[in-house]
Amino acid sequence: MSKWDISGINEWKSGEFPLGAVIPESGNSRDYVTGGWRSDRPYRNDDVCTQCLLCWIMCPDSAINTENEEVTTFKLNHCKGCGVCANVCPVNAIMMVPEGCDLPEVK
């Protein structure tokens, strides 16, 4: 499936849109940033994390990356900072820290 180029969409005339308000590209909200909603960001301490993956399955924003069956980084362009991941973590490996403060390297 090819990328739908919407760079000029604000100038498109009525006849230039795909018919019937169809969105011809799937999952293109990946390009839409909701990270700006966040006031707190998740920080995971890998020394504590047991890789149980509960945070991943409970994330409302599909914002936790996985690789080789392990959680890796947070997708900070999508994470709204809800804190569900920190709340469900059984070993308190994730904490919510205010945006903008000095942090250890954020994952």
Binding site: M1, W12, G15, F17, L19, G20, S26
Partner: peptide, 26 residues
Amino acid sequence: LENPVTHGSFAGLGGPFFEFKKAQRE
């Protein structure tokens, strides 16, 4: 299925609703 599309989108937040109606008229 090779080209998954979204039908019935929400064009109500300053989206081009007006242009879609014009396209219907055309």
